[in-house]
């Protein structure tokens, strides 16, 4: 077991719209009504951890939109990855993806989105927090996870402790692609797609979709052509990550990590995990398209992503 010491604290000075302790999420618990949780852009959390030699799903901080700042009480190595939120170290710009040394007394601050929406901060060995059901993922609605174990978001004065040390940080092998415009998200088509009208299916894959302002960690609503499905109300059933459900108003909702475990709207299918990560970086108003992919192709790309971190 890793031993932490109080000297290695990072003190949160201010939080922006949302800063949460997140890891890869809770698994094996959804039959109890407990959601998955975890980093929305799991690829960026994976890279931030990889830079420090941590396992990809190690607990870090998910910073949405910016406005977050912390001060180091001790010198250590940190890493950030994901959205470019204008990170600075004592006012000097930092690259959005990379490891860096922070000295005692220095301040790491995030301003506002330059590209993408969420940045991930990794600490050596991860953020110290007590896991519940195998995870420290913060889910406010369920009062689970986070530093206090009660689902609280990070707040000013919180102390982040590193679970380990990092002797030799790595360098990013390439700049990760961030969605900017014309984002194409891959959708694994599901069995219920056959119940949608032909014109709606054509529209699904040939029309631009806008990310709505109604977007959070539970789901992201898209606006565009109205999709019609012959299935009315369905009996509730388990919902996979990335499920693209279409309520009666015909506007799809993509269900993400904090989704409810069961639900009863017809679904076109589910975004691939890589597409879910990309969607987490899309601000409201972003235009995107959906493209069909088979489970086999989606799996191959998913495994290739994991292989980069071995």
């Amino acid at each position: 077991m890793m031993v932490s010491n109080d000297d290695a604290a990072l003190v949160v000075e201010r939080i922006g719209p949302q800063a949460l302790v997140e890891d890869s999420g809770r698994f094996g618990v959804r039959h109890l009504g407990v959601t998955q949780g975890g980093a929305l852009d799991w690829v960026s959390l994976g890279w931030a951890n990889w830079l420090l030699g941590n396992a990809p799903g190690t607990a870090g901080v998910e910073i949405a939109i910016g406005g977050f700042a912390l001060k180091a009480e001790a010198s250590m190595t940190l890493a950030i990855a994901g959205g470019d939120l204008g990170a600075t170290l004592d006012g000097a710009p930092l690259p959005p993806n990379g490891a860096f040394a922070i000295e005692r007394g220095q301040t790491l601050a995030f301003a506002q989105p330059v590209a993408g929406l969420r940045a991930y901060l990794a600490l050596p060995g991860g953020v110290v927090a007590a896991p519940f059901m195998g995870s420290v993922a913060t889910v406010a609605r369920e009062q689970l996870g986070g530093l206090d174990g009660r689902g609280s978001a990070l707040a000013g004065g919180d102390r982040l402790l590193a679970a380990g040390t990092c002797a030799a940080p790595r360098e990013m092998p390439m700049a990760p692609a961030l969605p900017r415009e014309d984002v194409a998200l891959e959708l694994v088509t599901g069995a219920q797609i056959g119940h949608f009208e032909g014109a709606s299916l054509f529209a699904t894959f040939n029309s631009p979709w806008q990310v709505d302002t109604r977007a959070d960690r539970m789901g992201v609503r898209l606006t565009g052509p109205e999709l019609r499905c012959q299935l009315g109300g369905m009996i509730s059933e388990g919902i996979p990550l990335g499920a693209v459900q279409v309520p009666p108003d015909g506007q799809p909702i993509i269900l993400l990590n904090d989704r409810q475990t069961i639900g009863g709207y017809p679904r076109l299918g589910a975004l691939s995990p890589l597409a879910c990560a990309a969607l987490a970086q899309c601000a409201p108003g972003t235009t995107l398209t959906l493209s069909p992919i088979t489970p086999h192709q989606a799996r191959r790309r998913y495994l290739a992503t994991l292989a980069q971190w071995r």
Binding site: G28, R30, H31, I235, S236, E237, G238, P240, T261
Partner: peptide
């Protein structure tokens, strides 16, 4: 098995 979610008429196998 990652998750198994039984419901009224179905079981979701993850």
């Amino acid at each position: 098995l990652v998750d198994l979610v039984p419901s009224y008429t179905t079981l979701l196998v993850n």
